[in-house]
């Protein structure tokens, strides 16, 4: 922290008074809560609607907490999110970006979340931080190779 303070300078005006540090557990708790709430709903809608409704509920939950001006730190949010919910999170991030009042700093292994339009991506390694394009990350390349040829990819990976 002390070393970072010499490197970073925080600029915000007016002072940031709102924001959240979301760990993976936070997302997991929300997802589990919404799953449970849906199961206990006596007027449970059919499955297709349920999945749509879940995504909406998830996003509503976070939008409510991320609507205010602030800095939001998300640590690997994908750990609790299905691909379709990751898309919902991307939509929310885009709306936060367009609002111009919030900044999100996120660590992720998800190629979907890395592709967030307008985001600046940095790859961290033992050599430090460097700007990167999501298409150049190991995560994206591995997923692309797997998608292009699952059997061949697995043969090689497990050899």
């Amino acid at each position: 922290g002390a070393a970072l303070a010499n490197t970073f300078r925080g600029h915000w005006l007016p002072k940031v008074t709102a924001g959240w540090f979301f760990r993976a557990e936070s997302f997991y708790s929300v997802a589990r809560y919404l799953d449970q709430a849906a199961l206990e709903d006596p007027f449970r809608p059919p499955p297709d609607f349920l999945s749509w409704s879940h995504g909406e509920g998830f996003i509503r939950f976070f939008e409510e907490r991320c609507r205010r001006q602030g800095i939001y730190i998300l640590d690997e949010p994908e750990s609790a999110l299905s691909p379709s919910r990751q898309i919902e999170l991307l939509k929310m991030l885009q709306r936060m970006d367009q609002s111009g009042t919030a900044q999100v700093i996120m660590a992720t292994h998800s190629p979907l979340l890395m592709a967030c339009p307008g985001a600046r991506l940095f790859r961290v390694s033992r050599f430090g931080l460097e700007p990167a394009d999501f298409r150049d990350t190991d995560h994206f390349r591995m997923l692309r190779d797997f998608s292009n040829d699952p059997d061949g990819f697995l043969d090689e990976a497990l050899y």
Binding site: G1, L4, A5, F8, G10, V16, T17, A18, G19, W20, F21, F22, R23, E25, S26, R65, G70, I71, I73, D75, E76, I105, M106, A107, T108, H109, L113, M114, C116, A119, R120, L121, F122, R123, V124, S125, R126, L129, A132, F134, T137, D138, H139
Partner: peptide, 29 residues
């Protein structure tokens, strides 16, 4: 957005940034 292998210190970096912003761990301001 920060990407990297496990063990490269992503979470530590986020915690340090959060501390600079005055956040408690997993909490809000």
């Amino acid at each position: 957005i920060i990407v990297g292998e496990n063990g490269t210190g992503k979470s530590t970096l986020l915690e340090a940034i959060g501390a600079l912003a005055g956040y408690d761990e997993a909490g809000g301001g």
